[in-house]
C-alpha cells in the first residue's frame, strides 16, 4: 500500500525550493542583491521551523489546519520562483535567462507541486477533476519535449529540414 502524504510534505518541498533558490541566486549573484541567497536560507529555516511546530503540536492542530499552513508556505516559495522569473524578464530584460529559468526551474517546480497536491487530495478523498489530471499529463509531456528540444536544437532543425526536403 502506498504511503499517504502528510500535510507537512508541502513544507518540506517549500524548504527545498527555498534552498534551491538560495544556491541559484548565489551562482547568479551579479544579477541579484547580495543578501538574497541568505534571505532564502532564512526562509528555508522558517520551513524547518514549520516542521518542528507541526511535530510538537501534532495532536492539537487538525489535518485541515496543518495542510493550509504548509500549503501556504509552499505557495510562498513558488511565488518567489515566479518572481525571480519576472525579475529576469521585466527588470533585467534578460530574455534568454528568463526563458531558461522558466523551462528549467519555474515550470518543473510548479508541475511537481501540482502533482503532489493532486496526490494528497486523492488520498484525502477529493481527487482532482478529470480535465485537470489530463491537463497535468499534457503539460508534463509538453515540458519533456520542450526540454529535449531546448537541449539539442540541432535535432529539431534537422527534422524540420528533412520535412522541407520531402515536401519539395
Amino acid at each position: 500500500m502506498a504511503a499517504e502524504l502528510l500535510p507537512e510534505f508541502f513544507a518540506l518541498l517549500g524548504t527545498d525550493l527555498f534552498l534551491m533558490l538560495s544556491l541559484l541566486t548565489c551562482l547568479l549573484d551579479d544579477r541579484f542583491p547580495k543578501a538574497l541567497p541568505y534571505i532564502y536560507q532564512i526562509a528555508a529555516l522558517a520551513g524547518f521551523g514549520h516542521l518542528l511546530v507541526s511535530r510538537n503540536f501534532f495532536t492539537v492542530f487538525g489535518d485541515y489546519m496543518r495542510f493550509w499552513y504548509c500549503f501556504f508556505y509552499l505557495l510562498v516559495s513558488l511565488t518567489n520562483i515566479v518572481a525571480v522569473n519576472i525579475y529576469f524578464a521585466a527588470v533585467k530584460n534578460e530574455w534568454t535567462l528568463a526563458k531558461v529559468w522558466s523551462g528549467a526551474v519555474t515550470f518543473p517546480t510548479i508541475l511537481v507541486s501540482i502533482f503532489f497536491v493532486s496526490n494528497y487530495s486523492y488520498f484525502q478523498g477529493i481527487p482532482f477533476p478529470l480535465f485537470l489530471q489530463v491537463a497535468l499529463v499534457v503539460a508534463a509531456i509538453i515540458m519533456g519535449t520542450s526540454v529535449a528540444i531546448f537541449l539539442s536544437p540541432e535535432a529539431l532543425r534537422k527534422a524540420l529540414k528533412e520535412d522541407k526536403e520531402v515536401r519539395k
Binding site: L6, E8, F9, L12, T15, D16, F48, L51, S54, R55
Partner: peptide, 8 residues
C-alpha cells in the same frame, strides 16, 4: 527537515 518529516 527530512528527518523531522520522517519522524512525523
Amino acid at each position: 527537515s527530512a528527518a523531522v518529516y520522517y519522524s512525523l
